[in-house]
Design a protein around this nucleic acid. Structure first.
Lengths: 210, 210
DNA sequence: TGACAATGAATGAACGTTCATTCATCTTCC
DNA sequence: GGAAGATGAATGAACGTTCATTCATTGTCA
């Protein structure tokens, strides 16, 4: 019932714990990570976690929250890009590759798995997705590049496609920790995705030369 | 060490257990599903599971195996379709929508989450993916439709894109159990995806009229 | 300034519970 | 009778969570 107070110094502890939790969750998953794992990774005692989070579920929720904030910030940055393709590029690179790619990919896949059965996490995650997709929908609707390039696809369809590709590549990512380095994968994925975007937003009926 | 024998009658029990496990895993996830849950769902005793599976991990592995067999069969069916687009359609609908869509989506996302930290499951899942992607790559490489429609994308790139979209939509699926029915979602996704395929395999430089 | 009181962040052993796994026992069917 | 199928109570390890306790820091008063 009683929320732990959140003032200046507490903020640091909270993010210290969340940082440790991200590492553990990515390595072992939500339900295989024990509170002792987190406290160990953070270099603090178990009990202290309960001063900052009501329980384990609250830690998971807070991580989903953090993920939302990160995505929202990215969207803001993307909105300021001069062209649609540049906006998308910002979103895509940030989306799956910033910070520690392995960790983030594994964490996001786990987040969706958790969302599929935890209504609270589902709400948070859906919220992130809706916000981000609405943002992209807007970018598309306002972009001159997209005006003459419907291909029978609405901005809504396009946004869904773009997100599906991004999430799908992230999903495929978790299976390939060894074949290539993260940087190589990122480069290749960006290249492929860029071509898709160009194709999607190429004025309908325009001649294309490789 | 000692594999439980697998003969005629045992096969039925095994699939009975796997069927129950799929339901439980989709509902609660691998690690929140107890062996008692599975035995309850299957209508048998806990101990009996251990006559057919060495341990819980073996049940998870067997499910990944089953998933592989299903995908391989689908690929075989898709190979016999008369055109590339029809092949892809068979793969796509089977891929995420056959049987009980909700269950399968949640299970597959969980499978990938598990793969990200369980090397054995990762190997199995990667194997499925490689097989399926190689199949699609072949379909594309042999298809006359794809010959004149490179857009700077190799068959490899195209296969990766097609898979990313399919997996991505599956991932988005787990967040939307309420907005629409499974059938509505399937229809809409298929429509959007179909347009993407047409766009990808439309001869380069050809005029397109909605 | 120095002695003392109060605070609350931090600790980690302990608790109750859950879970995977085992095995003594019972049933079935030839 | 006995081999194989099936049961579920028992086991012990691991887990999330609690809480009595410690102790560095801060506030108070002479």
């Amino acid at each position: 019932m009683s929320q732990p107070q959140i003032d200046s110094s507490n903020g640091d502890r909270r993010s210290q714990i969340l940082e440790a939790a991200l590492v553990c969750f990515a390595k072992r998953g939500f339900h295989q990570t024990s509170m002792h794992d987190i406290s160990g990774e953070a270099g603090i005692s178990v009990g202290l976690i309960y001063r900052y989070f009501e329980n384990k579920e609250a830690v998971i929720s807070a991580m989903a929250d953090r993920h939302k904030k990160e995505i929202t910030e990215m969207l803001e940055r993307a909105r300021q890009a001069p062209s649609l393709l540049e906006s998308l590029e910002i979103l895509f690179t940030a989306h799956c590759c910033e910070d520690a790619p392995q960790f983030v990919s594994a964490f996001v896949v786990d987040l969706y798995a958790e969302a599929s059965r935890n209504p609270h996490v589902a709400d948070l995650t859906r919220d992130v997705l809706e916000t981000a997709m609405a943002g992209v929908r807007n970018l598309i609707a306002r972009a001159p590049e997209a005006q003459n390039a419907a291909h029978g696809l609405t901005p809504d369809d396009l946004a869904e496609l773009i997100f599906a590709v991004a999430r799908g590549m992230l999903m495929l990512d978790v299976l390939r920790p060894q074949e290539m380095t993260a940087a190589e994968r990122r480069t290749r994925q960006l290249e492929v995705t860029r071509r898709l975007w160009r194709l999607l937003f190429k004025p309908e009926g325009e001649l294309a030369y490789a």
